[in-house]
Design a protein around this nucleic acid. Structure first.
Length: 275
DNA sequence: CGGCAAACCTGCGAGC
DNA sequence: TGCTCGCAGGTTTGCC
């Protein structure tokens, strides 16, 4: 489900609800996700105060007053849902309950159990295996045409697959790769190493724009995704190509949106205007 | 080493 | 109605 815009939206919601709050109770109801919860997860967080919540790539990072950091990932179907009042009885796929000292709570729900929650410390975080190899943040200053070209140099794989590689650029997934390539008029089948110079200079702002617009709309809701506040995302209504197989291209009007499979994932594009 | 398919898990919709 | 198949926003593993 969640790519950068969805995780960013969730983090903003959590920040508003949790920053400055102490965790009065933490309850792990089911620990056997694809990556199991670490031993002592609940105990290590109970009584700790949340000092900040931020995002790196598709990871949530919750910082605590004792230097611990919770590294969270929503996988394909993970949700974080903020509630007030008494915590509800455990629902299906509710894996963790966080109760705060102001009487609120947050539930981590993940139907497919591809998500994860791990613990690390602030001073070792940048060396954590999940974070160490990540590429630049696409909305940050370290992402530009030359940087992207360099990351793609020598890569004999379709640009679609390269952009899904979190070492190239961090936070893109299947939806936003398709939308960004459409905006940059680059075919998803083009070999990655040929995206250099002017093409890379087109792709960088296309990636930035689609992510910023998606964040402004609260992300994209297809099936599982909701914001932490429970609201839906609305960017799915703006898709130019994703999940629009057979529909007319919004840009060139000549072609129909085509669906192909690359690296075992669906790719949507317009063969008439993406080269 | 690079690139790709399969695996992980659950649920839903389409088609027979 | 009910079954099977294919597919889903991600990432890792293992094979060639």
């Amino acid at each position: 489900m969640p790519e950068l815009p969805e995780v960013e939206t969730v983090c903003r919601g959590l920040e508003a609800a949790l920053r400055g709050r102490r965790l009065a109770r933490v309850e792990v109801r089911r620990a056997d996700l694809r990556v199991p919860f670490p031993a002592g997860f609940a105990e290590r967080l109970t009584g700790r105060r949340v000092t900040a919540i931020r995002r790196r790539a598709k990871y949530m990072l919750w910082a605590f007053d004792d230097g611990q950091v919770l590294i969270g990932h929503l996988g394909m179907s993970g949700r974080m849902v903020i509630g007030g009042g008494a915590p509800p009885p455990p629902g299906r796929h509710d894996h963790v309950l966080f109760v705060t000292d102001d009487g609120g709570h947050v539930v981590f729900n993940d139907q497919r159990r591809f998500g994860l929650m791990l613990l690390d410390h602030q001073d070792t975080l940048e060396h954590h295996p999940l974070l160490a190899g990540l590429g630049p943040e696409p909305l940050g200053n370290g992402f530009d045409g030359p940087t992207l070209s360099a990351a793609l140099a020598g890569r004999h794989t379709p640009i679609k697959a390269a952009l899904l590689d979190q070492r190239v650029v961090a936070g893109l997934g299947n939806i936003y790769v398709a939308e960004a390539l459409f905006r940059a008029r680059i075919s998803p089948r083009r070999q990655a190493y040929t995206v250099a110079g002017a093409r890379a200079e087109r792709l960088v702002p296309a990636i930035r724009a689609v992510l910023e617009e998606a964040i402004a709309k609260g992300g994209s809701t297809l099936r599982d995704y909701v914001q932490a506040t429970g609201e839906l995302g609305y960017f799915q209504h703006e898709f130019a190509v994703y999940d629009r197989e057979g529909e007319a291209c919004r840009s060139c009007q000549r072609g129909l949106v085509r669906r192909i499979v690359q690296a075992n994932r669906s790719t949507f594009y317009c063969a008439a205007c993406q080269r």
